[in-house]
Design a protein around this nucleic acid. Structure first.
Lengths: 231, 231
DNA sequence: CAAAAAACTTGAGCTAAATCAATTTGTATG
DNA sequence: CATACAAATTGATTTAGCTCAAGTTTTTTG
């Protein structure tokens, strides 16, 4: 991994993220002392599916994509990871492995938190524990939805869903589509790259979207939502 | 729902399950006071996907299957729920809906715990919170695996996996296969019922399994594991 | 800036698995 | 116990979407 460990305090942030606000002095110290600031360059892996780890990652700044690896270049993209989100929380418990991979789409400022630190704070501070737990619940709900999408929808619906999801991120990152290749879109929609290209063309022909250079503009949200739901 | 609420203390158990052991007097009282004992008959729904709820369920005795509903009789079976396991923990937080359905395979003795009770105990008792959290982590890990299975394996692999999973439950419930129809197996393996039948036949012909009446005996574990991994 | 590599595009053909249809077997019910 | 209903089985047919091949465009790099 071509990573850079922030040598001094240049990058050290004061963990001002909401979820760290309600910690006691002592707890804050624990997080601070256990965290390591790291800068990931575009294309670097933040986590590698199956790898053992004794830390979770917390995104300060940047964007990454989270995906499940299959055989031979087949991946399934689950989501875009944004600032304020944890990556690899599963390592907190018995399961010390990352159950997904993630890769930086742009430069990412991240800090690593020892799982032991998170673990012991959870024991002391129920509110913090609930915050973390809530993240699990949401992740869980998302995974259930993904399974439904993958099992019950067909290509068109999955691509429509993908476009709506990515479009919803434009408020935070307007150039989101420019950061993604056709293969990325295909991996979000769980199709082959060729099918993704054909789907986009057909959506454009039907005037649901506009494809300019690498940007993608949604035009007919209603139609896309309809396709996304119908499957 | 044809459910029977235990009228008196016949069925009331002393929440001796491990996860409730480390609670304080006060907390135990909270759980006890908030719980309602229910008996579900074979075929009854314990949870219904999408339904709002203010309680989670805890299985005392019995077996149920957990599944994700699709359109028109298409379901995906995720697991068999056993005594000592929670059902619908997701209702504890913002997400007050069940994100899956579950149905009793045999008579099930269950108690309902108000989510508010669990929630407040989590705040007070970090160890309990970690116990609950650990259940999420495992569920999460399972869901990631399921997505891999569904996306990257084909029929044969999924059916082999299904058979190995169900066989592993025989130690606790030897008649597990007799409780399941071909459609149930198909729903575990994410195939059509017809395909499931054909797969089982072909596994039998290859001498990987024996099909007697409604029981299924695994004969060649190695071969099945191989198929299950290769996909 | 030229060459090589990566990403994108398009059409043709193939394939895994679903659907359909028809029959048989098993189970529940009046 | 007979009738109806649900589950299981089998072969024939269809199809969604993948793979393959071949070409074009874009991006990266020496």
């Amino acid at each position: 991994m071509k990573t850079i460990i922030a040598s001094d305090n240049n990058y050290i942030c004061d963990i001002q993220a909401p979820c760290f606000q309600k910690l006691s002095e002592e707890e804050t110290e624990l997080v601070k002392s256990s965290k390591t600031q790291i800068l990931f360059r575009k294309g670097d892996n933040l986590t590698k599916q199956g790898a053992f780890s004794s830390y979770a990652l917390f995104m300060i700044k940047g964007l990454a994509k989270q995906y499940i690896e299959g055989e031979g270049n087949k991946n399934y993209n689950l989501r875009i990871i944004k600032p304020g989100e944890f990556i690899g929380l599963s390592t907190i418990f018995s399961n010390k492995r990352f159950n997904y991979s993630s890769v930086a789409l742009i430069e990412c400022q991240v800090f690593l938190v020892e799982t032991e630190a998170i673990n012991s704070i959870c024991k002391q501070n129920g509110t913090f524990a609930l915050n973390i737990m809530n993240r699990y619940v949401e992740q869980n709900a998302n995974l259930y939805e993904k399974i439904q999408t993958v099992l019950y929808k067909q290509m068109n619906g999955r691509m429509a869903e993908t476009l709506l999801y990515l479009d919803s991120l434009k408020s935070e990152c307007n150039e989101i589509f420019q950061l993604l290749t056709r293969k990325d879109l295909a991996d979000f929609a769980a199709t082959s790259t060729e099918s993704a290209v054909k789907l986009l063309k057909s959506f454009e022909k039907e005037d649901f979207i506009t494809l300019n250079e690498k940007d993608t503009q949604l035009k007919n949200y209603e139609a896309l939502k309809e396709i996304s739901i119908r499957g």
